[in-house]
Simulated assay, not measured.
Amino acid sequence: MSSVHLDTTHRFSKQSVDTIELVAGRGVAGDAHSGVTVQHRSRVRADPTAPNLRQVHLMHQELFDWLAQRGFSVAPGELGENVTTEGLDLLSLPRGTLLHLGSEAVVEVTGLRNPCAQIEDFQPGLLKELVGYDDGGTLVRRAGIMAVVHHGGTIRPGEGIAVVLPDEPHEALERV
Rank of each mutant, 00 (worst) to 15 (best):
V28R: 02
V28Q: 09
V28K: 02
V28G: 02
A29Y: 08
A29L: 12
A29S: 08
G30H: 06
G30N: 07
G30Q: 04
G30C: 05
G30Y: 05
G30E: 08
G30F: 07
G30A: 03
D31Y: 04
D31E: 10
D31P: 04
A32E: 06
A32Q: 09
A32H: 14
A32M: 01
H33I: 00
S34F: 02
S34R: 14
S34T: 10
V36I: 15
T37V: 13
T37I: 06
T37M: 04
T37H: 11
T37G: 08
V38C: 12
V38Q: 10
Q39M: 12
Q39R: 15
H40V: 02
R41N: 07
R41Q: 10
R41H: 09
R41E: 06
S42G: 11
S42H: 15
R43F: 06
R45P: 06
R45Y: 07
R45C: 05
A46K: 13
A46S: 13
D47K: 01
D47S: 05
D47L: 00
D47A: 00
D47H: 04
D47F: 00
D47W: 00
P48M: 01
P48D: 12
P48R: 07
P48H: 10
T49V: 03
T49Y: 13
T49S: 15
T49C: 07
A50C: 01
A50R: 14
A50P: 09
A50M: 07
P51Q: 06
P51F: 00
N52M: 06
N52G: 07
N52W: 00
N52H: 03
L53H: 14
L53F: 07
L53Q: 14
R54I: 01
R54V: 08
R54K: 14
R54E: 03
Q55I: 08
Q55H: 12
V56N: 10
V56G: 08
H57R: 10
H57Q: 07
H57G: 03
H57W: 13
H57I: 10
L58G: 11
L58D: 05
